[in-house]
């Protein structure tokens, strides 16, 4: 076992590089996916059929085909058509397209979930459709879509593992190398699990932070938030005295 740890220590710089590749793929892929999701998701809520229908077709196509095949297509087929992309661009592109399609559906449904009265109030104030979306509808839809986007972000992180098939040395690839050099399958893959889990956990915390901010801006508390649960525990223990200090999520602290 100690041997394993010494070889892990020796291997750390390599694993660090792997983590770096995985993070770049995750963050760049997520950024690309978000841009695609906004464009396609907003198009799918359009009243113009010439926008809505093509967007719907693109979304269904990329949701309905495997990420791995999309990746292979970008990596092996595009060069046949004369477009040569480096492996990193292929990886980011495939992740962005695949998860962008999923996220587009989240964007679309969240926008349509915003109360009808909000759209009507915006029309009654003669706000232009663009203004209405940017100032009224999207900020409210944003708070609704974050939890689903967080789940997709974690899935995207885990999805990055497929890029090892196209010669990229990401975290999974490095873990595999660790396994080969230590000859201890249990140890190596457990280390892999833990690293992925820690990254996923950090991403989830960041998304929770975003969600708290978005809901606070709507003057609401996130349902079942951590502060709320902490407060409940404290009250249960019979020390409710300081709960005002926790009550910051709802805003300015000015009590009516």
């Amino acid at each position: 076992m100690t041997d394993n740890f010494t070889s892990l220590l020796d291997f750390l710089p390599q694993i660090g590089e792997g983590i770096q590749v995985t993070l770049i793929l995750t963050l760049a892929g997520a950024l690309g996916a978000m841009i695609i999701a906004l464009v396609l998701g907003l198009s799918m809520t359009s009243t113009h059929a010439w926008l809505r229908i093509p967007a719907r077709i693109i979304v269904e196509f990329f949701r309905g085909t495997s990420l791995l095949v999309q990746l292979f297509w970008l990596f092996y087929v595009l060069p046949l058509l004369g477009v040569e992309l480096d492996p990193m661009s292929c990886g980011i592109g495939a992740l962005a397209l695949n998860y962008g399609a999923y996220s587009a559906e989240v964007v679309r449904s969240s926008i349509l979930t915003v109360a009808r009265g909000q759209w009507e109030a915006a029309i009654a104030l003669s706000l232009s459709p663009a203004r209405r979306m940017v100032r009224i509808i999207f900020p409210q839809a944003w708070a609704l879509m974050i939890p689903s986007l967080a789940t997709l972000l974690i899935q995207l992180l885990k999805g990055t593992a497929v890029v090892s098939f196209i010669t990229l040395q990401d975290l999974t690839d490095k873990i595999n190398q660790l396994r080969m050099s230590t000859n201890d399958t249990f140890f190596s893959f457990t280390v892999g699990l833990i690293i992925y889990f820690v990254i996923a956990w950090i991403l989830q915390e960041l998304m929770n932070l975003l969600e708290r901010r978005a809901t606070a801006r709507l003057g609401r508390k996130r349902p079942n938030s951590r502060t709320e649960r902490r407060l409940a525990r404290r009250l249960a223990r019979g020390e409710g005295g300081r709960h005002d200090a926790d009550d910051t999520a709802a805003g300015k602290g000015v009590r009516p």
Binding site: A115, Q118, A121, L125, L127, R135, I136, Q140, L218
Partner: peptide, 24 residues
């Protein structure tokens, strides 16, 4: 003016009132 008020929850009271005068 609507039965359900329909104020914009992502804005303060003042922002609700000035949004359209400024942008429309």
């Amino acid at each position: 003016v609507f039965q359900q008020f329909n104020l914009f929850p992502n804005m303060t009271v003042l922002e609700n009132v000035i949004e359209a005068p400024i942008h429309v």
